[in-house]
Design a protein around this nucleic acid. Structure first.
Lengths: 336, 336
DNA sequence: TGGGTTTATGTTATCGGTAACAGAACGTGC
DNA sequence: GCACGTTCTGTTACCGATAACATAAACCCA
């Protein structure tokens, strides 16, 4: 491996002089600069960031811990993160927890050891330990998508409560009264906030007594499948289902198909999150669209701000607006 | 920041002794070990991988350079990479080139500076420079998804030629004779291999004179849109379109819709790559499915093998089989 | 011409770990 | 009782870079 010492030797100067040329710091004579640059070229020298980072205590690397990159919502978010990071010369290490708190702490630990400058984290249900860990180390971090109750920390998320409210309001205005909500985990705020929005919409419509039709499961296809089946057993049965995320919607759709129910003729189905690649064909599902790319981009910018400023600054809770897109999966309830 | 020196001081031993306890190397008395472990606990000490890596010349980090993580094919591949890396205690830095050779070299350079142990690379159209750069530095790397002609290097990819052949054969056996191929860039082997498979299928069917209906564009929705429009102007017009990837298929579908053509009644449409999230609903498109997850996983394993072995080993060209999934977007051509 | 600044370069210490070597205490066999 | 091996711990040097300080020549003005 070619080091700064090799370059120095070849150019007949000290390592420090080479360092100055590379970083454009201090005084260098034109002639020396050229000699050093020539040596760098000839040796094809690439500086070692590791050594640099050890000195500077800055790696220009951030960690991105999310639950599952194959969820298109997080995919798009990750792209927003990488773009924002890249714009500022930062690299991104990405990690999938699959909602496991153990994996989360493991990754937080590994990334800490790797001395990342900061961390973006989609918290799992048991994140407080990780947060305490990070706070004890003064390692800047920004939470994504989900709040963690009782902690005053930076969060960038979408308005889950309002979005759910809008979706349910949309169903109500179509004439639905018996609407079941298929939530994710009851320990994840993006899930509970959506259920809260569902309840508020019903309450505002004077249908408080219908608000018990909320089933918690998990943000997975299987979770959606079983939650939908549970909802279908309710008496009288719901005329519409509100899925708290895209995976749940897919599972719910399967359950409906297996039950021989057509969407939207027999039952309406609406969902949080889009299915981006299906949009090219026949976009079907009425959804709340979240600005996933902006979320990732914005959170990264906030994190990088935190890194460049001195003090910790007031924690921010940035809530991005969501957008209702009405398609064909929601229709007025069947007569009777 | 708590360093090994702080732990040493607190435990009343030398740094070296602490290092031995951490790494379980050398001789340590039971009593000293416990005192050191207690100090580590009390100080909440986390080792600095940077310093370690500087010594060891190994970072346990690999780079993943792909074109665009929001393409579900690469998303799934990336997940396979991260899983395999994580299984072996490696972290993954991911980068999007958007098919730009400049971005590619920039990222290769950055990752080299960061001293990644190895690199996974989906080559762009002008990758040879990067390959030479990596070879000069003896930095192990494995190419993903695409070959680079004239270089004997490790590649993990799918059988694009055979897959395209199978797709076109499927159309032929439905009775289609005028089939247009919508390719990506003509400088990317996954694109040219698919066109080659298209041509072989026609040749084998004695329809060599029909093999001119191949349009190169780019692996994007816009590319697919314009390529499809071009194909539609051919006289006589094609009765089926073969899209060389999922984005092209989406663009082509839009073009068909705008032209007032129904799929498959008026024209058939088949494609390489699935649209995973749409599968939950009404899977529509007849496709060649690539084992994206396995590709990422397998390539990572190969890379990690390269890292652990001494010599460079014989370059491998691992070709994973693909799978035809017939759905409703392909049907016999309309009569007349 | 001499003192002070500007310009240019080198030396030393350091970041946080670990390898290599050194040395002390202890046990064991003759 | 002594040589030798085993066990345990410490010291020094080093990984590849840079900050801080040191030094020396060139330049400038009184």
């Amino acid at each position: 491996m070619v080091t700064i010492a090799d370059v120095a030797k070849r150019a007949g100067v000290s390592k420090m002089t080479v360092s100055r040329v590379i970083n454009g710091s201090g005084y260098i004579s034109q002639e020396t600069r050229e000699r050093v640059e020539k040596a760098i070229q000839e040796l094809d020298y690439v500086p070692n960031s590791l050594a640099r980072s050890l000195r500077f205590k800055r790696t220009r690397t951030i960690g991105l811990i999310l639950t599952d990159i194959t969820n298109p919502f997080f995919t798009t978010l990750a792209r927003g993160v990488e773009d924002a990071a890249s714009e500022h010369g930062f690299s991104v290490i990405f990690c999938n927890t699959d909602e496991s708190a153990e994996e989360e702490s493991r990754y937080v630990n590994v990334l800490t050891q790797k001395q990342v400058d900061g961390l973006l984290l989609v918290p799992t249900a048991r994140t407080p330990e990780s947060i305490t860990f990070l706070e004890n180390r003064n390692l800047p971090f920004v939470l994504l998508d989900r709040r963690v109750p009782d902690f005053r920390v930076d969060v960038v998320r979408c308005d889950s409560e309002q979005g759910a409210h809008d979706l349910v309001y949309h169903l109500l205005s179509l004439g639905h009264q018996r609407i079941a909500a298929l939530g994710g985990s009851m320990h994840i705020t993006s899930s509970t906030d959506r259920i809260a929005g569902y309840r508020r919409a019903l309450r505002e419509a004077g249908l408080e007594h219908e608000a018990h039709r909320a089933v918690f499961s998990s943000f997975t296809i299987e979770g959606g499948f079983s939650a939908a089946n549970k909802a279908l057993t309710m008496q009288p049965p719901p005329t519409a289902l509100f899925a708290a995320n895209n995976f749940i919607a897919i599972g719910a759709f399967r359950a409906l198909r297996e039950a021989g129910l057509r969407v939207p003729q027999d039952i309406s189905l609406v969902s949080f999150d889009d299915l981006p690649m299906s949009v090219g064909f026949d976009p079907f599902l009425t959804i709340i669209e979240q600005p996933a790319y902006e979320m990732g981009h914005r959170a990264t910018q906030l994190l990088l701000e935190r890194l460049s400023q001195d003090g910790p600054g007031e924690p921010q809770d940035i809530i991005l607006p969501v957008n209702l897109i009405v398609r064909v999966s929601s229709a007025p309830p069947a007569a009777g």
